[in-house]
Amino acid sequence: MRQVALLVVLVSVLSVPVAGAAGVAGPASQQGAQAEASVPEEGVDVTIQIQSDGAARWNISTKYALEDGNDTAAFEDLRAEFEAYQTDSEFSVDVFRAVVPEVSEHVGRDMEIRNAGRSSTVVDHGNNSTGVLSVEFTWANFTRVQNETLVVDSFSGTWFGDLKSGQTLTIRPPEGYDTTSVQPAASIQGGAYKWTGPEQFASGEPTAVFTGAAEPPNGPIGVSMMAVVAIGVLALLVGAILVLAYYRGGPVGRRDGIPSLSAWLGDSDEGEAATDGAPGGTEPTEEPDSGGDVGEAVTPGASADAGAGQDVDPELLSDEERVERLLHEHGGRMKQSKIVEETRWSTAKVSQLLSSMAEDDRVEKLRIGRENLISLPDEGLDRE
């Protein structure tokens, strides 16, 4: 069992505040000190907030039960002197500054006490109240930092002591950190680890190990992961659209390429109906097909012979030649919807292809009701 050390110094002085007050004050202060002696001290709470950089923010609070008006008046005198640093009490950050060199040498880290302050408050609960005096400070390098792991190892030695009845010690890890180990066993309250006296600590205890990520969950790493997921989803969506467009445009291995995305999404400004036979429909903007021909170019005059040949592999014909061949096979005239059916191309592709062929005088188009009648130039649609 460790010797009771620093906590005894803090509590023994605070439980009898008369001695400190009478030593530095006159008769009036002595009267106030006598009143303070009647205030029953309830205990001491030590709370340590571990920070991600290895520092620790300490809060040491002593509590007084204020059961009547005399207790309250006595505490008001005490808190006024306490906040004005007029007491000769050992309840001071200087107690911790005195042990820092010893702890620093033991753990092998430079340490420093900074940002110290005092505060007091009265907490009301039911018919009674509790007066609280607090000392706060930051203890630099209190925790050993190993990459993203924080090791609480500065309680080694006998400087802190054991917890007596009415005393508590609470260690709170930084936000976002997981707990690897805590010794000895402690109760968990709001993510913090709390020991309540009487508690005897073994040599080197209490200890704790906390592990956290390089950035909090909503930091740069979280944002970058979300961005990667979003890009992946977008890539899959675009890929699915392109594959769908390709297979709807014709057989696998076709040379005419993939139809434009705007054709599948229905974007159009002017032109003929996108779906022949659909009431009120309009075709997308006509654009020349980008597919290339294989072999020698076929002129409009020579296309008839090429289209009429039955010994030519259809896969070796250009799109225009395949349309001309169909027209020859059907007496030189076909409905546009029939061409879509025979070629198994998309309606948008056929519409664009026929518009391009009409501009090159390779076919003629005649609007009949809601459909287009397509014919070879020598069929003479203009005469009908």
Score class of each variant (00 low, 15 high):
338 K>N: 15
218 N>A: 12
337 S>C: 11
222 G>D: 07
201 F>E: 05
100 V>N: 02
28 A>R: 08
243 V>P: 06
253 G>P: 10
122 V>P: 09
325 R>F: 01
328 H>T: 08
229 V>A: 09
232 G>S: 06
316 L>T: 14
329 E>Q: 04
73 A>N: 04
346 S>E: 14
248 R>H: 12
128 N>R: 02
357 M>K: 14
315 E>N: 15
12 S>G: 11
382 D>V: 07
300 P>I: 05
18 V>L: 13
36 E>A: 15
332 G>Q: 03
114 R>V: 14
86 Q>W: 15
178 D>C: 09
321 E>K: 04
119 S>R: 06
63 K>V: 15
165 S>H: 13
264 W>L: 15
46 V>Q: 08
121 T>C: 08
15 S>R: 07
91 F>L: 02
307 G>C: 12
126 G>S: 04
237 L>T: 10
103 V>L: 04
87 T>D: 06
216 P>E: 03
127 N>C: 08
70 N>M: 13
242 L>G: 08
67 E>M: 14
121 T>Y: 07
355 S>Q: 15
298 V>N: 10
28 A>W: 00
42 E>Y: 08
356 S>M: 15
36 E>F: 09
92 S>C: 07
213 A>T: 06
197 G>S: 01
31 Q>Y: 04
203 S>I: 05
255 R>D: 13
111 M>Q: 05
331 G>M: 01
158 T>V: 11
74 A>G: 12
131 G>W: 02
99 V>N: 12
287 E>Q: 11
212 G>T: 00
122 V>L: 13
305 D>F: 11
308 A>W: 08
325 R>T: 02
164 K>P: 06
276 D>M: 10
11 V>H: 10
156 S>M: 11
380 G>S: 05
145 V>H: 05
178 D>Q: 11
297 A>H: 06
150 L>I: 02
278 A>I: 06
132 V>T: 01
79 R>L: 04
8 V>Q: 09
372 N>L: 07
257 G>Q: 11
371 E>F: 11
359 E>C: 14
138 T>Q: 03
141 N>M: 03
223 V>C: 11
62 T>I: 01
320 E>Q: 12
147 N>T: 04
29 S>G: 13
306 A>M: 10
353 L>V: 13
189 Q>N: 12
97 R>P: 02
132 V>E: 01
69 G>N: 15
354 L>W: 10
205 E>H: 01
124 D>M: 12
96 F>R: 05
210 F>V: 04
79 R>P: 02
